[in-house]
Design a protein around this nucleic acid. Structure first.
Length: 267
DNA sequence: GACCAGGTATTGC
DNA sequence: GCAATACATGGT
């Protein structure tokens, strides 16, 4: 066990922020399923308790939760008269852009298209249960590229992937065959990274943006989905403020989270 | 039981 | 080029 006080960190807000699909609320805390490991988190007053030791926390989870960065700096970017963003930041305080596995992000966001976040979670859980390694008898790791590349398309479809099943298999085969080297792609400029991702079937601008932001930590990338379309239209006259561009991805995450909570543009 | 979901590829003008 | 359309399935 490792206990620590953390600034600008809210596992509650992160878990529901739409960037990750395998952080689940439990009766007394949250369960993180990442890197083939299970991390339990308890929120105890001002402190957090993690089911790991200090060494692993610092070597693995500190980076995953992006804890080496001061998010107060990002929050200070909000323009004084930008009420929507200020409200969104107040509401979503403690959200961070996680450093997640690029492979998992690629498959997760291919699956995400035309699905609700709860439905995405369900699909990924079923996919992991069917094709991922058994971690502790109850929880399963995200499947390896090799496994999904060899998987039967109908077996993939039975995880609720629908027409995305062939996209997933095709992407997996490209990764296994080194047509897509996710490791080397870390060195690409954002524009080239996006281009490379969009060579895949089923990966358009939005999915590539999410992979770039959540899997490669390209904070200047702005994913625009149906929710962000509404925010940009309703709150910013159709254009995302250019001042925020270098950290558009971070800013967007607060906006997206708040929009979903408020159900902007609905009823 | 509609309606919509962190879209994309394809088609038609 | 850009607008319309099909696409599988689950959650509310």
């Amino acid at each position: 066990m490792y206990e620590i006080e953390l600034e600008d960190f809210s596992i509650e807000n992160i878990a529901d922020s739409g960037q990750c699909f395998r952080i689940c609320p439990e009766e007394d805390g949250f369960l993180v399923n990442a890197f083939g490991k299970i991390l339990k988190i308890w929120h105890l007053g001002p402190k957090y308790r993690f089911s790991t030791d200090e060494e692993e926390f610092n070597n693995l989870w500190r980076g995953y939760f992006d804890l080496n960065v001061d998010y107060g700096e990002y929050r200070s970017l909000a323009l004084p008269d930008d009420k929507y963003l200020r409200d969104a930041m107040r509401f979503g305080r403690g959200i961070r852009i996680l450093n997640q596995d690029p492979w998992e992000m690629l498959i997760s966001f291919i699956i995400s298209q035309r699905k609700s976040i709860p439905a995405i979670r369900t699909s990924i859980e079923r996919l992991s249960r069917a094709f991922g390694e058994d971690i502790d008898g109850t929880h399963f790791a995200f499947p390896l590229p090799e496994t999904l590349a060899e998987a039967d398309t109908d077996a993939l479809r039975s995880c609720g992937l629908g027409y995305r099943a062939s996209y997933v298999r095709s992407a997996a085969m490209n990764v296994v065959g080194n047509v897509l080297d996710l490791y080397k792609m870390r060195r690409l400029k954002t524009f080239d990274l996006m281009g490379k991702l969009m060579e895949l079937r089923g990966v358009g601008v939005k999915v590539a943006s999410c992979v770039a932001l959540f899997g490669f930590h390209r904070l200047d990338v702005l994913p625009v989905d149906v929710w962000m379309k509404r925010v940009i239209e309703n709150e910013y006259g159709g254009h995302f403020p250019t001042q925020y561009q270098p950290y558009a991805g971070v800013i967007q995450q607060y906006m997206f989270n708040y929009a979903r909570y408020r159900k902007v543009g609905l009823s």
